[in-house]
Design a protein around this nucleic acid. Structure first.
Lengths: 186, 186
DNA sequence: ATGATTTTTTAGCAATTGCTAAAAGGAATC
DNA sequence: GATTCCTTTTAGCAATTGCTAAAAAATCAT
């Protein structure tokens, strides 16, 4: 669980006591490529940390799959900041590679929030980090052309280009796959 | 200060003790239409609550003013969730009407976070609410046409149509003012 | 009111992006 | 190696949106 604690520590320092309380509630599990980690995100009762592997969150919009998140190693996904029934239809998380996740139940997390002020702070910090990355996404969608968004993505996540299908990347970037193919050609 | 405490209470209940600690740090001030409330948001040392009036946050993008937030009554703006140097150039907040704001310094707020677990929770909740509204913005920008975004805005904030210039609304909605005018014509 | 300034609309054209359908390329299976 | 399935690219056309410039309308100050 060291990797997860390191991840948390970089966000905000935690006492040994709080760290131990967290570890006591953690569960580690391995899944295979193609498995569905979370069937319905809005009803998900756990928070996940991806220790190793790759995940993809997606939902359906007019019959089409829309990818709205990629989870590389050291990513967090779950109800902490995503427990909203905003998307219509199923919002799921599937694994694109063999993946090791660490999970904590939302119930346990709430208990930790109640008991440890510093963990509540951690939750606030993670939420603020999420806000920051969402703001970047908003800015890129509002001002960058499809071409710029694609090239920024390639620069930011070069490894994903090899590990994820281009169709998923196109939907993540909010453009038609045909458009993205045209961009790649140039 | 009752209006502000009511606003907070709806987000998460606060003890009388915590409420008193907050009130002790608050300051109320009145400004006139046209004044600049915050000159540089990323360096702003205060959190503001708009008790009455209307504010607008904007920045410059290639010489053009981009509005990225409207603050109606019962809105919060400040470093809690916005203290990021993401925008290039000046990011300011001006008042579109005579406005009464309640403010708290970021320093005092941090002190309150440290001292009161429940206020830290409040901060987390406000961050989560922000995430929710940002997700809605992302979804609307990714999937809705300019026409749909405009009509959704009108439905959501009918009063702003009277109180804000159409150019500001267009930039807020991420479209050319000329495009918006075309949409309105139909 | 009158003139000046700002805001909004209109017009014409260009660029970007989306859509459908088909072809090409790759990967998996037998 | 052939077949099948899935992914990616290509092609042609349509729709949306952006841009510039100018006209019209509204607002503001004197």
């Amino acid at each position: 669980m060291k990797q997860f604690l390191d991840y948390l520590h970089k966000i905000t320092p935690l006492s040994a006591d709080a760290q131990a309380a967290i570890v006591a509630k953690l569960q580690k599990a391995a899944y295979s490529k193609g498995e569905v980690l979370i069937k319905e995100l809005s009803k998900c009762e756990h928070l996940f940390f991806i220790e190793k592997g790759l995940a993809r969150a997606y939902y359906f919009k007019q019959g089409k799959e829309i990818t709205d998140w990629f989870g590389l190693e050291n990513s967090v996904i779950g109800p902490v900041v995503r427990h909203f029934p905003t998307k219509t239809g199923m919002h799921s998380v599937e694994l694109l590679e063999d993946t090791v996740v660490i999970s904590i139940s939302f119930y346990d997390l709430q208990e930790l929030y109640d008991k440890y002020h510093e963990i509540e702070r951690l939750g606030r910090m993670i939420a603020i980090q999420t806000i920051l990355s969402m703001q970047q996404k908003i800015d890129s969608m509002q001002f960058l052309t499809a071409k710029q968004r694609y090239h920024d993505f390639v620069k930011a996540y070069p490894s994903l280009l090899q590990r994820v299908s281009l169709g998923d990347i196109a939907s993540y970037l909010g453009m038609n796959q045909v458009t993205m193919s045209r961009i790649r050609k140039i």
